[in-house]
Amino acid sequence: MHDEKLIKEIKRKALEIRKWVIESVYRAGSGHPGGSLSVADILACLYFHEMRHNPKDPKWPDRDRLVLSKGHAAPALYAALALAGYFPVEELKNLRKIGHFLQGHPCMKKVPGVDMSTGSLGHGLSVAVGMALAGKLDKKDYRVFAILGDGEVQEGQIWEAANAASHYKLDNLIAILDRNKLQIDGPTEEIMHLEPLAWRWQAFGWDVIEIDGHDIEEILGTFHEIKLNEKPTIIIANTIKGKGVSFMEGTLSFHGKPPSEEQYIRAMSELEQVERELND
């Protein structure tokens, strides 16, 4: 059990991330709000409690690493990094603007705190395997987190990486699969089926944990269940695409589309309402 104060604090951070997702994507005029909102609670738990990191020393060799393999959720990652103190939150207003460091997809050379450049789906888990392997080689105790989209695991390279992770017994590797059940062309099970998803990962030699990806207490508790048993772990986080903004929840249309002005105002007022309730 985590104390209520901590849970409330992380809920607040998740809400702030969501507000910045809406704000930055609206200002950018393009971007991916749906998948950014679905992963907001997970990122809040990682950056504001679970991960060992230091915003004052982004390249700290002993830090836990995070690879956002579903790089299109960059607005949520940037918001988490800014709120954690890697760079001023005001910079989030310049997402996707020419000459600015906040690229449409994460760029490790430009953004402090970004551990790997991603965006083209299917690549991040391989890189996370390499980082975890380096940790084992150097006998360091850092962990590597890789956040995958659900549609993303249709890419074959993901399974090459999954195979390598269990072969090399990388129990310092934790994948989190944002199971929001929608991809651009439709529901994952209609476009290219993923189920039985947990069984597939188990068959590749992974420990599998299934959780509600919006329940802060459950997310935090999950990390305690991960064992150093020479097996990589995947957390299948059941989520809702667009979570937190009523008219975006469970819809396909906000995968890669910014809100209109009217939608922006509605989304922000909904999130501010929740924030007020949380602060009461």
Partner: peptide
């Protein structure tokens, strides 16, 4: 030395991850 099996694209990604950690 790591043999990554017949999975070349993954090998390149793993190489990137190792390099990102100073190798």
């Amino acid at each position: 030395f790591f043999d990554m099996g017949i999975a070349e694209a993954n090998m390149m990604g793993v190489a990137a991850g190792l390099a990102a950690c100073g190798k």
